[in-house]
Design a protein around this nucleic acid. Structure first.
Lengths: 142, 142
DNA sequence: TCCGAACAGTTCAACATTGAACTACTAACG
DNA sequence: CGTTAGTAGTTCAATGTTGAACTGTTCGGA
């Protein structure tokens, strides 16, 4: 096991993540969702506007337009014009959209659960703690 | 800080990773590389054949074909037919390809370094240890 | 009240990605 | 050897992604 530069370490991490995603993708697709659409739906409660989603998902606005268009056409998302700001559309999950999203989440949970089974309880807790630290918005360097 | 299902935890992880990647992307591009191309070059020493790369990168073969074609056209990769198996092409990094790849790696290192600065020395060691556990090929559940 | 800057979302054309089918080659086995 | 199954890599057409430019709306001065 060689030395790991931060980048190599993170490449490892990235590959684990991508591997698990690739693993669950077929099953998620059976719920009528692409992986990217699943992530979009998962953000919808906190980020109900397309431009908001674009920022949260680090994805160009046109891509969001097309994804939302499809999700609306299959009845997973409802789009209503926002009273008070005619530029915006407020997006909401329909019941079937929420159902699909939660089913997909369960599938992802299960796959990561299998992967995390390699760790002890305390290692998992430590990992969770560290990841939260790393994800926090305003970087407090020590 | 709410409860974290494995999937949510990993979504967090994924977003941190993607965030840092998005952050360095412009700078990597200045080295003449797309992020995906950088990952490809990083695998080249260990996976010198296109089909091999496709598996390692979890990417369809045609995509690899096109990426390699471009990387060859800009002189980052050399393609030679493999003596003994005429179906294969052995790919190698050219000096300029290696240089670009290493410059990109340095950029990524630096960005992750900044992020990891939030952690104590022991937390970093623990994280590295855990990520290696998670990435190992044959899953030893405990 | 008017104006200019900024924002939300879309359109469109260029470009990238990919599933399916294909060619060329190798390998296993009788 | 000859046949068959499998692998490497490509082509092509369909689909997905995205930068640039656009429309319509809001907002903050002056």
């Amino acid at each position: 096991m060689g030395k790991s530069s931060p980048g190599e370490l993170w490449t490892l991490n990235f590959e684990v993540t991508m591997g698990v995603m690739a693993e669950v993708e077929p099953e998620v697709r059976e719920q009528g969702l692409e992986m990217k659409e699943f992530f979009l739906l998962g953000k919808l409660d906190d980020h109900p506007y397309p431009a908001d989603l674009a920022r949260a998902l680090i994805t160009p606005k046109p891509t969001i337009t097309f994804m939302v268009k499809r999700l609306e056409s299959v009845g997973f998302v409802k789009r209503q014009t926002e009273t008070g700001d005619l530029r915006r559309f407020r997006l909401t999950l329909t019941p079937s959209g929420r159902k699909a999203m939660e089913a997909a989440r369960a599938i992802l949970d299960e796959a990561f659960e299998r992967r995390l089974a390699r760790l002890s309880r305390s290692e998992r807790a430590e990992l969770a703690r560290i990841l939260v630290l790393l994800s926090e918005k305003n970087a407090p360097p020590r």
